[in-house]
Computed example of a mutant assay.
Amino acid sequence: MDEQTVHAVERAISFMRQNLADRITVDDMAQAAQFSKFYFTRLFQRVTGVSPARYLSALRLEKAMRLLLNSSSTVADISYQVGYNSPGTFSSRFRSSVGVSPITFRQLGGYTSHLAADSRVHRMDRLGATIRGSMRVTEGGRRGFTFVGLFRDPIPQGPPASCALLPGPGPFVLNDVPNGKWFVHAQSIAIGAEENVIVPKESADAPYVGSCGPIVMRRDASTIVVELLLRPQRTVDPPVLLAPVDVRSDAMRNFRAENVPDVVSVV
């Protein structure tokens, strides 16, 4: 992807972030990117993997996650600040994407207490297939707990069809993968930054992300091998709309200490 194209999409995303409380149209985004509406829509999809409207919706919820943790505003006030006209609609969208209600998200400090795959995936759709993979880290800095999940689309949101929590980047296995088209997403927490996953204190503490897809699982497939490259999240990457598992307990820290190697290989 050429640099000029990426910068155009970044201009549109910056415009979205600055105006989340307002009604934003595709025409507005295209004007910020300095392209025609129709060309911009195709361009944006190619760079980010999702449509401008879906990216904007994800940005609104990402901003809401931060406000719930960093402000004392009510849920209703936050819903208006991120562009929703109805607090009820906002709460419903938030719960379906993040996995918990806005109030519960705030009460839990931005974490979820457990890791669970989507129980709504019909048993008959599960093929008994497996996705095996490995992860590499592109830049320096030790990574700790790493979540890997299987999602229906490029935006990591809602309960995954299959998932795993690892003590650090490395090999992973996702079993009982259902039929269909899937995206694998990984998020790796910096060691020592477990307290501030959603709103890191410093850029070096921000989680690393990696993804691949679409992966098409058919009935004649048994095992698919993938590789994920973990790196700092870019402006054009879709927001991660997941409440991370709370890894701050002593038991989880001991799990990490016993299993994470002294050195994580760097590409």
Rank of each mutant, 00 (worst) to 15 (best):
S57P: 02
V247C: 12
V245L: 14
G180D: 10
I198M: 09
V209Y: 00
P232I: 02
A30D: 03
T89C: 10
R60T: 04
K37L: 04
M1A: 10
S97E: 08
T138A: 15
V100R: 01
P214W: 09
N254D: 14
F183V: 09
A251H: 08
R231M: 08
R234A: 15
F172A: 06
R11N: 15
N175C: 06
L127D: 03
L67E: 05
A221Y: 00
Q233H: 08
R120L: 14
A64F: 05
S71A: 11
E227M: 05
G168C: 12
G99D: 05
R23K: 10
Q4N: 11
V226Q: 06
N85P: 03
N85W: 07
D262N: 09
G158R: 09
R234V: 01
G210H: 06
M16P: 06
R253C: 05
R253Q: 15
L174S: 03
I24N: 02
H122T: 14
I198F: 02
L166E: 00
L67M: 13
L150I: 15
M16T: 00
E194R: 00
R17D: 10
Q45E: 15
G180T: 06
E10K: 07
V9G: 02
D205N: 13
R218C: 10
D220H: 11
S71G: 05
F35V: 04
S51C: 09
P102H: 08
V47C: 13
V6R: 07
P169F: 02
N175Y: 04
R234C: 10
D22F: 04
Q45W: 03
P159E: 07
S101D: 07
M135T: 00
V267W: 06
G158K: 01
P160L: 03
Y111V: 08
V240E: 04
G170M: 07
L20I: 10
D125C: 11
S97H: 09
G170W: 01
I13E: 05
V264C: 07
F151L: 12
A21T: 12
D118S: 11
S188Y: 03
R231Q: 11
Q34P: 02
V216I: 15
K63Q: 14
T130G: 13
K37N: 10
Q107T: 14
Q31E: 14
Q4F: 05
M135Y: 02
L108I: 12
